[in-house]
Structures are given as structure tokens and as C-alpha cells.
Amino acid sequence: MTLVSEKPTSAPARRRLVASPGSWLIWGAVAFFLVNLAGLIAAVVVNSFGSRWFDTWLPSGWTTEWYATAWTEFGLLNVMVVTLEVALLVVGISVLVGVPASYVLARRSFPGRRLVYLLFLLPILMPPITYGIPLATVLYKYGFAGHLTGVVLANLVPSIPFVILTMTPFIEQIDPAIERAARMCGAKTWQIFLRILAPLLVPGILAASILVLVRTVGMFELTFLAAGPDSQTLVVALYYSMSAAGIRAQQSVDAMAVLYTSSMLVLLVTALRFVNPTQLVARVKEDPD
């Protein structure tokens, strides 16, 4: 067994990592993974700045012209605007629709609650392609696909359940006594929502919005199936430029990929300021002492 656990002593402050054969193996594996990951990202970044790069360790010269090429050739400004529009619309709608629903699911018990919960869980449990193909067919039938509307509608399918699942623990944290007190003072349900719950839920709503934003910007399958030529988001444009390899210089594709990654990274770092990724499933008791 290569697993190593700490001695059951109560460490006063943060423990230092203690080296033992098992943990060397584990950290070695992590390091190997991270080194390769860094190499993978660096390869794309270096290629996007290199002028010519064939059978050498590094490109023969450095240039930024690929970014200019990518910007004009792929019409990146338009793509960026579309991506932003889609992402903001999806975030706005899914929060407006998802938060009230997650409030009811977190607080109330009613007949059919489990069924409703399952219904909200299914879109997350199914691979996007499975429901994406029938969904795109339906969207084409009603003339929504190929435009921004279709892309937004398709992306709502996993986003609304995602908001509901993310918001539930945040809502459970709020003491129901506060709402009861507001009700005693004569507040209506919408007043409770706007004046009591909304301010208390701001961190949760921010966390859910940023996570949905990251997911929507990164969502390939649904956007790919529902988008037309004028409603491609950055990932889909990237896919098309890659699968049409040979026509475009690979470096300008890489430049586009770098732009995509850096925008995702900015989003991610912002997201991590608001949510601790390890606390999405369970509230962690980190200090047992």
C-alpha cells in the first residue's frame, strides 16, 4: 500500500509535508503530471510567438505577427463579442431562473420533490452530445438554431441545473429564522427575496455566476451543434480553425488558443477568489482541534 497518513498527533499549526517512500511516489506522479501539463501549455504559447519552428528545441525567431493574423483572419473581435454576449445572457438567465428554484428545493418538502430534483440532475448526468443532437434538431425546427438565441437556449440546459446545485449549500447556510422574522414583520415573499435573501446570497450568486461563465465559455458540444456562422463562440471558432488545418498557419491557430486560455485563466482566478473548489461537495472541517 503506497498510502501514507499522518501520525495521529494534534499538530499545533499547519503541518509540514513529511517525506516517506509512499509520499515520494505520489508527489513524483503529481510532479510528472504537472511537468507534462506545463510542457503542453508552453508548447502552444511558444509556438504562437515563434516565426518558424520545425525540427529544433525552440523556434528560430520570435514574432507577434501571428496574433495580428489571427485577429484579422478569424474575425476574432466578432467572435469575442459573441462569446461575451452568450456568456452574460446565459449567466443572467440561469441565475434568475435557478436561484428561486434552488431556494424551493433547499427549503421545502413537497410531493414529487425527488422527481423534480432528478429532473434537474439529469442534464448534468447526460453527455451533452446525447441531448445536444435532438435539442439542435428541435431548435432548427423552430428556427432558433444558427443564431445567438439558439446558442443561449442550448447552453441554458446544463447551466440552470448547475446554478441550482451550486446554490443549494449557500441557501442551506442561511438561518430560516431570519426569513420567519421578516415574515412576522409583514414582508411579502418577493420582499423577503429582494431585501433579505438576495443580499445574504451575494457570495453564492457570484460563485455560481462565475462557474457558469467558465462553463459556458468552455462549452464546446452544445454551442457547436446550435451555432451558425455568425454565432460561434471562441471554442467553436478554435475547433473549426483547427479541423481546417493546412489552410491556416498552425501558429495563428495557436495564437487564438493562447487568447482563449488566457481569458479562461482570468475567469478561473477570479472564480477561485470567491469559491474554494474543494468545498463544492462538502463543507470541510479543516480544523478538527
Binding site: 431562473v97 410531493p111 423534480v116 435539442l135 434538431t137 428541435v138 437556449l153
Partner: peptide
């Protein structure tokens, strides 16, 4: 446990029914 507050579920349910259940059944 059934009262007017359950209306809050309706927009979410409507979206899932219209965009997930209906297309799936259609497919």
C-alpha cells in the same frame, strides 16, 4: 407542503421541460 411558494420552481421546471425533456422525447 403545496402552496404558492412552489411557483418559484415553475420557470426552472419550464426551461428543463422545454429544452431538455421535450427535445429528448422528440429525438
Amino acid at each position: 407542503g403545496v402552496d404558492r411558494q412552489l411557483w418559484l420552481l415553475v420557470p426552472g421546471l419550464a426551461c428543463v421541460l422545454a429544452l431538455f425533456v421535450y427535445p429528448f422525447a422528440y429525438g
